[in-house]
Nucleic acid binder design. Structure first.
Lengths: 125, 125
DNA sequence: TATGTTATTAGCTAAATAGCTAAATAGCTA
DNA sequence: TAGCTATTTAGCTATTTAGCTAATAACATA
């Protein structure tokens, strides 16, 4: 279960456009190709990418992108693993799964309470 | 459908602890009682509350709470309606329903791709 | 060992954020 | 109309954020 502090970190991490785009592309494979070009045959998840590959997609400096990645890592939205002198970045789907669950529970409880109290349900109205 | 700009506003709105707590209590009825005490018989959703009622729960000034509420309103997380000289605040469940859907779609697509590519599914492993 | 590659740290600046108090606005009520 | 209640606006300050360059660290390889 994600506690409030962790949720705040996740919301903050995703509230910045650059971090949101990194998140989007890490989760949907938007950066995956560049990796193979750089080091064919390396044994990593084909969805994995690295800091400089991500940075290629932005007009920001490498340290800036590195700092954004650190924030996504601390929010547990991505995982990072050092192999050689590269950092391999992968999506952390379990955190997103938990977020989906939290929002869904809130909606379900809300709809259920509304039905209990008012006998209606705007969700199907 | 929520566009990226709207999602960024929602994440930003929920990244601050005070706003997160307001959100939590507006959605779960944490502030509802004070309203009746103030104006019995007024014709509003019993879950509705107002700015000063919310402010009672924090050690922050009324203008500070007012500004937080404005940000939640602009993120479409809550709705506000002026009745007389009060602002009645209600949860906007449709926005949260959309967020739940976005996260769930991301998770479902991710799991589906993983199964397609690797024949496994960490969700049930 | 020297050089190149990848990423982080340090130190800086400009802009945004979150808080405050005082004043203004809007509407109700005596 | 005068005064009361509810809320917002204006103007201020301290802190945080997001960007930069330069320097450093860690590792690979010629």
């Amino acid at each position: 279960m994600l506690d409030m502090e962790q949720k705040l970190k996740i919301f903050k991490a995703l509230s910045n456009e650059t971090r949101f785009l990194i998140f989007k592309n890490v989760f949907t494979g938007g950066y995956a190709c560049s990796l193979d070009k750089k080091q064919p045959g390396v044994e990593v998840n084909p969805i994995a990418t690295c800091v400089s590959t991500i940075a290629e997609h932005f007009n920001f400096s490498l340290p800036t992108i590195s700092a954004h990645i650190k924030e996504l890592k601390e929010a547990k939205i991505i995982t990072v693993e050092k192999k050689g002198n590269k950092i391999y970045i992968e999506p952390n789907i379990e955190t997103i799964r938990e977020m989906a669950g939290c929002f869904q529970t809130l909606v379900s409880n809300f709809d259920n309470n509304r039905e209990l109290f008012f006998g209606d349900n705007l969700a199907v109205k």
